[in-house]
Structure formats: structure tokens, C-alpha cells
């Protein structure tokens, strides 16, 4: 049985915990605390260590899903969990202030995961129509970080099918890169 460790990263309020709850086949381990920053993101609780869930894809692949806290002050948890992961689903809420730049900043913070396997970006809350919209993220990626080839999806983290599509895309991406890696190494001068 193949195992994948996938990280869910992105700012507070993007829907990381919700996405893992949508996908997981087991009771999700959550570490929620009362949110002191209601003026920043108006939600009652926030993740302060990690979320953990599991899903089996097909007959063979067990996927371990880890969510990290969104706030930079918990970046020690980012460092711990980054080491274990082979890929990342980055969630960005379209209605966040300066959402496109936030995506770029998080990509830079988690750039190792692109090298270790792959990254897929999910933009949530696009239905509100108050953010820059999907095209802005794709354009910013191409312009500012052309080295990151990452698919961008519009997602509702509450929707299992949406999140499953994103996850399957990431797994396919990771497996494809792993398959091509020996050929790329052989071709290197």
C-alpha cells in the first residue's frame, strides 16, 4: 500500500480544517482554540497545532492529511510538518485582504513542498464575488513565480467532491513527477 502525506496550508479562514473534515474517513484530530483575532477573521475557533485526517484512494493508496495553523506565529508547526509531507494543497480565501499576494507569500514559505512532490492551489469563497477571482491567481503565479507549475481550482472546502478532485490532482502530480524523476536525473549533464 502506497502512503502519501499531504499538507493543507494557507491563511486563517481559508477552510483547511473544513476541507480535511470533508475528506477524512476517520474522526479528524483537531486542535482548535478560541480565536482572539475575531477582528481579523470572524470565526469562533482557530487551529493552533494541526488537524489530522486519513483517506484511502482506490484500493491501495492511504493518504494522511495534515492541516497546519494559518498564522505565521505557528511557523514552528509548519517546519515540523513540512518535513513529512510530499505535497501541499494550499487554500486561499478569495475574500481575504490582498489574497493574491497572500498566495505568493505562502508559496514561498512552503516552497520545499513543491520540490518534494507538488502543489495544488484551491481558492475558496469565490462565490462571494468580492475577491480578485481565479484568473488573477493563475496570472500572478505565471508572472511572479513561473517556476511553480501549480493548478488552480475554485473550491468549496465543505464539498467532498471538490476536495477529492483537488486531492486526486495532487496525487497524480506527485506520482507523475516521481515516475519522471529517474529519467530527468539520467538526462542531466
Amino acid at each position: 500500500m502506497a502512503e502519501h502525506v499531504i499538507l493543507f496550508a494557507g491563511p486563517m479562514g481559508a477552510g483547511k480544517t473544513t476541507a480535511i473534515r470533508s475528506l477524512s474517513e476517520i474522526d479528524v484530530v483537531s486542535t482548535e482554540a478560541a480565536n482572539s483575532e475575531r477582528h481579523v477573521v470572524d470565526k469562533a475557533t482557530t487551529t493552533v497545532a494541526l488537524d489530522y485526517g486519513e483517506i484511502t484512494l482506490g484500493a491501495e493508496d492511504k493518504v494522511r492529511l495534515y492541516g497546519v495553523p494559518g498564522q505565521k506565529r505557528f511557523d514552528f508547526m509548519w517546519s515540523i510538518l513540512k518535513k513529512r509531507a510530499r505535497g501541499m494543497i494550499m487554500l486561499i480565501n478569495d475574500d481575504a485582504p490582498d489574497a493574491v499576494q497572500t498566495m505568493i507569500d505562502y508559496l514561498d514559505d512552503f516552497s520545499e513542498l513543491y520540490d518534494q512532490g507538488g502543489v495544488v492551489i484551491g481558492v475558496s469563497r469565490t462565490d462571494l464575488g468580492v475577491g480578485p477571482g481565479l484568473q488573477a491567481y493563475t496570472a500572478a503565479l505565471a508572472e511572479q513565480r513561473p517556476q511553480f507549475i501549480a493548478p488552480v481550482f475554485g473550491v468549496d472546502p465543505r464539498d467532498e467532491n471538490h476536495m477529492r478532485t483537488v486531492l486526486m490532482t495532487l496525487i497524480a502530480n506527485i506520482e507523475m513527477r516521481a515516475m519522471l524523476a529517474p529519467a530527468a536525473e539520467a538526462a542531466a549533464p
Binding site: 486542535t31 482548535e32 482554540a33 478560541a34 480565536n35 482572539s36 483575532e37 482557530t46 493552533v48 497545532a49 495553523p69 498564522q71 506565529r73 505557528f74 514552528f76 508547526m77
Partner: peptide
Amino acid sequence: TDDGFEIVHVTRIQTDATRFASMSSSIQA
């Protein structure tokens, strides 16, 4: 606070109080 903001600290050692507060919050959770 439960979500890792320092309210106050007293110390006789050098440490990054903000970081310690975040870590304590994670450990508690």
C-alpha cells in the same frame, strides 16, 4: 491565550516570549 497570544510573562532567562506562547498553545491543544 488558548490561541497563542502572550498576555504577560516574567523571566530570569533570555527567550523569545512570543514564540514560547505559540508553542505552549500548540502543546496544550
